[in-house]
């Protein structure tokens, strides 16, 4: 799944915010199902076999989320049965079912986002708003693996010195606490080196006059980024118009309304479908192109 990764971080984030925004905040059943299918296809392309391992988790999560609503929510007019003196309604069951779909879809979208948006790309975005904070984050990200490595080394050394033992849970916890305390000293001590290294390379506190730091941007906004964003805005416009016109409005309570499938409703559904499937379409297009190039050689 390289096609989508290659886009500019802004493009990726705009796309995801639009898609997850609609998923999270617009609860029309057909929309939710479309989003969930889109997320699933995207996840398959991204994760491949890895996805199989998380299916049980998604399934249990789905079940749990679907069951909670009818147990706590007693709105709705169609009574199904009573449980411990509480009324269980058909509407609440339907709502719970679709909320569960929503949650699963959002989880899958965000998982995809995490894969596509490396920490670099996030830092770039934060950096456009607050470069100093982005620098702090970059430094912290540089420290985290260093600290984890050091923790491991200290653990091994101290174990071989008989200073910590792993015989019981409690002594293990106490040992970890002591190591953590040592880590605080060690990391502050080493941070002084980093501070020196920064100053040696001309990093100055803000208050010096005539000092202006620049920011190196390792990403280029290309024509394809512009095209994709334009497409996303266009599709968003079409389906927003459809929503505002009421062509596909739906309500779960007090009585679950019937789904409308009119000529007018097809347009926003199609627009959303295309929007959600964009990454998959791009990916498949590229894969086909490659097959074509290879055979053409």
């Amino acid at each position: 799944m390289n096609t989508f990764k290659r886009f500019h971080p802004v493009t990726i984030v705009v796309y995801f915010f639009v898609v997850t925004g609609f998923t999270m905040f617009y609860n029309q059943p057909v929309f939710l199902v479309i989003s969930c299918i889109g997320a699933l296809i995207f996840s398959i392309l991204l994760l491949g076999r890895e996805l199989i391992a998380s299916i049980p988790f998604y399934f249990l999560f789905f079940l749990g989320a679907a069951v909670i609503n009818p147990l706590f929510n007693h709105n709705g007019t169609t009574i199904l049965f009573f449980l411990n003196g509480q009324v269980i309604t058909k509407e609440a069951v339907i709502y719970g079912f679709f909320m569960a779909i929503m949650l699963i879809a959002v989880l899958m979208w965000f998982r995809a986002l995490s894969i596509l948006m490396s920490s670099d790309k996030w830092l770039f975005l934060f950096g456009t708003v607050t470069p100093r904070l982005a620098l702090v984050m970059s430094m912290a990200l540089r420290y985290i693996p260093l600290f984890r490595m050091q923790v491991q080394k200290i653990q091994q050394t101290q174990k071989a010195m008989g200073a910590i033992n792993e015989d019981s849970y409690l002594s293990k916890g106490a040992g970890s606490l002591q190591i953590f305390s040592v880590m605080v000293t060690w990391s502050l001590e080493n941070a002084i080196d980093t501070a020196d290294s920064m100053r040696a390379r001309g990093f100055v506190d803000h208050h010096k006059k005539n000092y202006k730091r620049s920011r190196f941007v390792n990403y280029k906004f290309r024509r394809s980024d512009g095209l994709l964003i334009f497409l996303v805005i266009l599709l968003t416009g079409i389906l927003s118009a459809g929503i505002l016109k009421g062509a596909i409005s739906y309500s779960y309570y007090p009585t679950a309304s019937k789904l409308l499938f009119s000529k007018e409703s097809i347009i926003p559904y199609a627009a959303y479908g295309i929007l959600v499937l964009l990454p998959a379409i791009l990916e498949i297009k590229e894969r086909i192109q490659w097959i074509y190039y290879k055979s053409g050689m």
Partner: peptide, 29 residues
């Protein structure tokens, strides 16, 4: 350049580390 390789590195990526000093100089991208 100092003694310990680990502690002198400021940022998390190689490209950013190379650019760090130049950013401080205020150069353009």
């Amino acid at each position: 350049v100092m003694q310990r390789p680990e502690t002198q590195i400021v940022t998390d990526t190689v490209w950013h580390e190379l650019a760090f000093g130049l950013e401080n100089m205020g150069l353009s991208t």
